[in-house]
């Protein structure tokens, strides 16, 4: 494998909500254009980590963040323009969220908020993102009907299209398959394979096999600690560095 640059550098990150310690000092790098899997049981701080990366942790005023997360070498807690940072990162939450707008406006929302008004440019962008999210064929005839009226699986792809609409360099997916059917899950996994090497993808997943199928490298987190991080060959092998990783991956606990 060619040597890649780190896209995100996490060093000694700690996050505390009042007296709940969500993350207790974790350090690792996420490389440019890789698919990086994060696995671990519920409550281990995975979502919190994503919130720090795109600074939506700001909306949880009780959260205290120490340590450093750098995106492209810049400390996210100190960036001047958080909105630009958030546009650099696409975020897909566990439950599908169609905004109460038309399908078109759902996808055009972010570019419009960023100041793009020109119709042709928006049309092009909307079509491109819906294609990328494997949704175009299903909705191309009803772009102006409500996004909230789509099925759950379609809404999740709409959410992905929206996450791609501001042309991010990093795409984060937080347990995206938790509320959708297996067919859609496979469709989205295909989408991710297409995106590989075009952007950095962080795939937080509750399905160990999903990380094994898709990721280049995977981190295993538990109770706010990083247990192990490494290439999939090691993490999913019979003898990873940490015994717990083996047990979790093979369903012995978790």
């Amino acid at each position: 494998m060619v040597k890649q640059n780190p896209k995100i550098e996490i060093s000694d990150l700690k996050v505390r909500y009042d007296d709940v310690h969500a993350i207790n000092g974790i350090s690792f790098d996420i490389l440019e254009n890789e698919i990086f899997g994060i696995i671990g049981p519920a409550q281990s701080g995975k979502t919190t980590l994503l919130k720090v990366i795109n600074r939506t942790i700001d909306f949880s005023p009780e959260a205290r963040v120490t340590g450093r997360v750098k995106v492209d070498g810049k400390d996210v807690m100190r960036v001047g323009n958080v909105y630009a940072l958030r546009r650099k990162i696409g975020m897909v939450s566990p439950l599908p969220v169609g905004l109460p707008l038309s399908i078109y406006d759902n996808v055009a929302f972010a570019p419009r908020m960023a100041g793009i008004r020109e119709r042709s440019q928006l049309d092009e962008l909307v079509e491109k993102c819906l294609h990328q999210a494997a949704l175009w064929d299903e909705v191309k005839d009803r772009l102006h009907s409500l996004g909230t009226k789509l099925s759950g699986g379609q809404q999740q792809r709409l959410t992905i299209a929206r996450a791609l609409s501001h042309e991010p360099e990093i795409l984060c997916l937080d347990e995206f398959s938790i509320a959708i059917d297996p067919v859609t899950t496979m469709k989205i996994e295909d989408v991710l394979k297409q995106l590989r090497s075009k952007m950095t993808v962080i795939l937080v997943t509750n399905l160990v096999q999903q990380a094994r199928r898709l990721a280049d490298r995977t981190a295993f987190m538990m109770n706010g600690e990083l247990v192990e991080v490494g290439s999939n060959d090691v993490i999913f092998s019979d003898n990873p560095a940490n015994r717990k990783t083996y047990e979790y991956v093979n369903g012995i606990f978790g």
Binding site: T56, M91, V97, P100, F109, A110, A163
Partner: peptide, 25 residues
Amino acid sequence: MSFRQACWNVGATRWQTIRHIVLPN
């Protein structure tokens, strides 16, 4: 709440979120 979070995630400001999603709905 999820509507607001979705807007913040794509880089909308608080006021944009209020103006375009929360108030109209």
